[in-house]
Nucleic acid binder design. Sequence first.
DNA 1: TTGTTGATTTCGCAA
DNA 2: TTGCGAAGTCAACAA
Lengths: 219, 219
Amino acid sequence: MRLVIARCSVDYAGRLSAHLPPANRLIMIKADGSVSIHSDTGSYKPLNWMSPPCRLTEQPDRLLITGKSGETLTIEISEIISAWSADLGSDPGLVKDGVESHLQELLAAQLDVLGAGWRLVRREFPTAIGPVDLMCRDSAGVSVAVEVKRRGEIDGVEQLTRYLDLLNRDPLLAPVRGVFAAQEIRPQARVLAEDRGIRCVTLDYDTMRGTDDGMLRLF
Amino acid sequence: MRLVIARCSVDYAGRLSAHLPPANRLIMIKADGSVSIHSDTGSYKPLNWMSPPCRLTEQPDRLLITGKSGETLTIEISEIISAWSADLGSDPGLVKDGVESHLQELLAAQLDVLGAGWRLVRREFPTAIGPVDLMCRDSAGVSVAVEVKRRGEIDGVEQLTRYLDLLNRDPLLAPVRGVFAAQEIRPQARVLAEDRGIRCVTLDYDTMRGTDDGMLRLF
DNA sequence: TTGTTGATTTCGCAA
DNA sequence: TTGCGAAGTCAACAA
């Protein structure tokens, strides 16, 4: 990794055009050739960047970076304030816990959160337009398609609606009801879902994880 | 901005939990207190980060960063390889050209791209479920709702469909037809749109910008 | 290779 | 402040 702090102006031409007037910034050049330009504020997102794969060409006062589909990033350097280089080696990578797939696992193991006597038909129930997160039957034996989201927004309601439209054409399954389950459900998504007769359920990941731990201890 | 290259392990606890085993990495600490941890590969996204606003606490071999809603980022440092600091000053910011709003402006000024004799009723035509990008009337006076996208995907077709459903309930407007206009339309989005009687139009930003420049020169 | 979906998305605008 | 849609979204995964 090379790190350069320099006064520079930047131009990007690709899916859009973008320009940065001259100022002092950090230029980060990674071992894979990717480049990002950071200011001293803002979150982790750089002002400009080029993602790998790309090719870096160095000229006297200029860095030219070309992406594989023809995008160009041009960094005009008027003054180098400092520059370093370091070999970091490869990274063992990140371990995550608490993403949507975990939420889906937990809910599948605790269907009583949705209703007493429900049973799971299948996780990732396949359809022609994609898998339904959880296909269940309620205590009366009625089919229920459950869409699990971390954050419930309108897109998720549309997705579940498409599944329900399709599933209800299958006489072996119909009628199929819908449940939209998420840690957080946006008001507009809730309105749209309930307008379409889809039940909304808010999930508490920590409680479900706790319950699950308890289950594991009992058995 | 402070830059530290160090052998470190990292733990994040917030909306999810994440852990990074020990390795050499770059720790970037911005003037606003935000922190990001980069490896030597991958695009601009860091392995772990904390967005501002947040608070940084330094301990002998550890950095503790606390976010405003209680997330914590813990960096255990076993060896500092190098460390620098620099004051970059404020940044004048980025100038962008070619995003969706520009596309919408250009199309509003060149409705003949959609058909001869069309006229604009309103940009950002308000409805109860959000604004329609362009509301027009064609040469026969029939209402047309136009959804403009940079990249046309299924979500955009769903969005336009919702608008059309709503608008067609208004006897003053009905019948309302739909046009889905984008620089690039995904095949599945095109199929869905045309299946619903929505016309798809591919836009060429450079041509439209050129035409617009021409118009400006003429008047 | 293409398409789909999730993301600690981030960012910007408007109510 | 909150909500919502766009983004050079990126990135992982399946077909």
